[in-house]
């Protein structure tokens, strides 16, 4: 069984079983593959180098759109213009945090620096956003419904399995953020 993250003398520490680490690793890999920008023919290499992407489009996949949302509400054109300038580097920021978290999954005991904890919280959040889209969580009531699924012996279909995975990542992120808030307080 995983142990909740806690803040102590060694910093922020947590413990995950091998199967839990494998699960997290595959979730993280899934999100990374959703975020990796497609390499296109005839792309301007200089533009790509400085982070511009003039061929970018609003994502069609809802989960990807939740990870990379429009910056101006009800204004697709202004949002698209902003995407051309920023989306590539936003994808890279997210992939960076996800890869950093995946690297920490090599050992049972996880010991995090403040920067590592930040990457973990961002990675877990993106994993949860994607799972929530797959589970069709649209409002607080849906979230509450999913949250009631706590018993692994009830996992008989893909949806209930996903709900349990979502609840596990929620629990893990909550314990991590509580440890991070505690460490911020100590450093103040």
């Amino acid at each position: 069984m995983a142990k909740a993250f806690k803040y102590g003398l060694k910093g922020i520490t947590g413990f995950l079983e091998p199967t839990e680490r494998e699960l997290l690793r595959s979730l993280i890999d899934d999100v990374i593959s959703m975020l990796e920008p497609a390499e296109r023919e005839g792309q301007d290499p200089l533009a790509a180098l400085i982070g511009l992407d003039m061929d970018v489009a609003e994502p069609t996949d809802r989960a990807v759109k939740r990870l990379l949302p429009n910056v101006v509400k009800d204004d697709g054109a202004a949002s698209l213009e902003f995407r051309q300038l920023t989306e590539r580097s936003l994808r890279e920021t997210k992939i960076g945090a996800l890869r950093a978290a995946a690297l920490d999954l090599d050992k049972d005991e996880i010991v995090l620096t403040p920067e590592g904890a930040k990457h973990w919280s961002m990675a877990l959040n993106d994993v949860r956003l994607v799972l929530a889209e797959r589970l069709d969580i649209r409002d607080e009531e849906d979230a509450e419904h999913v949250h009631r699924m706590q018993d692994w012996s009830q996992a008989e279909d893909v949806e209930s399995y996903l709900a349990l995975v979502y609840n596990f990542t929620t629990w893990l992120q909550e314990s991590l953020v509580q440890a991070m808030l505690q460490s911020m307080e100590t450093r103040r």
Partner: peptide
């Protein structure tokens, strides 16, 4: 505020500018 919005999106918060 646009710079903040990108940072918020990095954290996974749903941010817009107006």
């Amino acid at each position: 505020v646009e710079r903040h919005a990108v940072a918020m999106h990095g954290f996974g918060l749903w941010a817009t500018v107006e």
